[in-house]
Amino acid sequence: MGNYAGYTDETLSGLLKDGDHAAFNEIWDRYKSKLYTFTLRMLGDREASRDLVSDLFVTIWSKRDAIKLSSSLSSYLYVSARNRAFDVISRRKVEGRYIDSFQHYLDRGEDNADHLVRSKEMAAMIDAEIHALPEKMREIFLLSRETQLSRAEISQRLGVSEETVKNQMHKALKLLKSRLGAAFILIFF
């Protein structure tokens, strides 16, 4: 085609859907620094911000034909980056709670190595099961449990109905209970 720098975001979006590498590269060049700066302000971590932006663009390329823009490309990219940053923040909170829980345990003076190992295994197992949930279900579950957002707030943030949020939470809890039920018995007995 020609000089992609002169193309509008709308034109580049259409070309991206058609699998045009040059259009993708132009979008990358146009937004990588802006999105990096945006997520760096949220995360305060250069490496995490670089990884987040790279992963975002990998996803955009791999799912280019499924992307439906209800607003501008710019809005789509910033909302996607923001949501991914929220996911990183949520994971950090969970990790922080696990660390705090273990520290509390150690502060009580209990040095039972077996119990520590079992607790660590349980935390890893729970985390693995949460991350094994389907993507949208996991996102709703984490937003509900780690950020204490209401169904309405989650619904608004993700652009889905409150009923969808309710159903996804119910399914997530049911799956986790069924998957972790036996694990609780094996680890603690």
Rank of each mutant, 00 (worst) to 15 (best):
I154Q: 05
L143A: 08
A23I: 07
P134G: 10
R46L: 01
R46I: 00
L158G: 03
G96A: 05
S62V: 04
G2Y: 09
D107Q: 11
A182N: 04
G19Y: 11
I185S: 00
A128D: 01
G109T: 05
V160F: 13
D87W: 06
I185T: 01
W28I: 01
A124S: 08
S178F: 15
N112Q: 10
G2K: 13
E129D: 07
Y7N: 06
D114L: 10
A152W: 10
F102G: 09
Y31K: 12
P134F: 13
D18R: 15
L142R: 05
W28G: 01
F86K: 09
M137T: 00
T147A: 14
L116I: 05
S62D: 12
G109Y: 13
D107N: 05
L186F: 07
A183R: 05
L16S: 07
F86N: 05
I154H: 03
S90E: 12
H21P: 01
S101T: 10
L12W: 15
I140T: 04
V160T: 06
L133K: 07
I130Y: 04
E139R: 05
E110S: 10
T59K: 15
E95Y: 04
I126M: 06
A183F: 05
Y78Q: 04
D20E: 13
K34F: 08
S155Y: 12
S119C: 14
